[in-house]
């Protein structure tokens, strides 16, 4: 608003600013130098190697350059297409549910008058730190044909016959979605909880005085303020779900049939379970990369981030 007044003095300070700007720019680069070096060496460089690998095919170390054959092969590979559609399904259903749940938890647990806050927070975070091996075993017990979930639903008269969750194509997917949500909601909650501390409390007080309900405060203050973090968590969760491996590997191993097979699990199978074809596995990995780029681009656009 004061830009018109500054116009006069701008001319004289322009050159000075330019030098300052350059200096600032150099300092800026030093801040990010270590990260650039490290990520280039340990991630970007191997990524390029992986890309070169994706142009090769063969058993183990007997690799030959095949050009784009691997990329063509993808479209005629029913297992890959199945893995792709499963993964997209997990993504579309699971990420929004988890983000909303995590937001609700963090707002509830940010209330300073809430008793046992630390306990509730730790409890809800606990699934994220629990060893996957153990929780997979327990999940399988819970969802077994004679497991707790079936017993409970039958006792409540919701079901008449037990559902075989892990052997049924539809219910196995639901079980995986429940498992990921269970494990990662508390994890996402941390990002919101920490970000909420950086919100000026006086904004809420002003809103309260203006008679805004807590629902209104949530939508008109909390969400806009948290936007950068919501963007961060949705991109990170998108990446996590597109690379989903652990839960599927340990709970259903991709079954029944290939009904819960994910792209990452397929990469694992191509590398270690079947006769290793690291070239084709790298090709499939680049599909994940491409998908994440597309989804992140959309999310950046939707969020209207300045970059």
């Amino acid at each position: 608003m004061s830009s018109s007044m500054n116009n006069i003095s701008m001319q004289s300070t322009k050159s000075k600013r330019l030098i300052q700007g350059l200096k600032k720019n150099t300092i800026g680069w030093t801040f990010i130098l270590l990260a650039i070096l490290g990520i280039s060496a340990f991630y970007l460089y191997p990524m390029i190697q992986a890309f070169l690998l994706s142009l090769q095919s063969g058993m183990g170390s007997n690799l030959d350059y095949v050009g784009l054959d691997n990329y063509v092969r993808l479209f005629n590979d029913p297992t890959f297409l199945k893995a792709l559609s499963n993964t997209m399904l997990f993504l579309i259903i699971q990420v929004p549910v988890m983000i909303v749940l995590a937001l609700v938890f963090s707002v509830m647990l940010n209330d300073p008058t809430l008793k046992l806050r630390g306990f509730f927070r730790t409890a809800i975070f606990l699934p994220a730190v629990t060893s996957l091996v153990a929780y997979a075993v327990i999940f399988k017990y819970l969802f077994a044909q004679d497991g707790f979930i079936n017993d409970f639903l039958i006792n409540m008269n919701i079901l008449s016959d037990p559902i075989n969750f892990l052997a049924d194509p539809f219910w196995a997917k639901i079980t995986i979605i429940i498992a990921i949500t269970w494990r990662w909601t508390g994890y996402n909650m941390i990002f919101y909880l920490s970000a909420l501390q950086n919100v000026d409390k006086s904004i809420y007080e002003a809103a309260r005085i203006d008679g805004a309900s807590s629902i209104q405060q949530f939508f008109y203050i909390t969400i806009p303020v948290l936007k950068p973090i919501i963007l961060f968590t949705s991109i990170v969760s998108t990446i996590g779900t597109l690379q989903l491996f652990d839960e599927v590997m340990n709970i259903t191993s991709g079954g029944p049939g290939n009904e819960t097979l994910t792209i990452s699990m397929y990469i694992y199978n191509l590398s270690f379970e079947y006769t290793p074809d690291f070239g084709y596995a790298a090709t499939v990995s680049y599909v994940i990369l491409l998908l994440v780029v597309v989804f992140s681009f959309i999310q950046f656009k939707v969020a209207g981030d300045r970059s």
Binding site: T79, G257, N258
Partner: peptide, 17 residues
């Protein structure tokens, strides 16, 4: 041979059908 696990992966899916 070398493709037992790979073939079984396909068969598991077809078995459901």
């Amino acid at each position: 041979g070398i493709n037992t696990n790979g073939i079984e992966g396909i068969l598991e899916a077809e078995m459901q059908n």
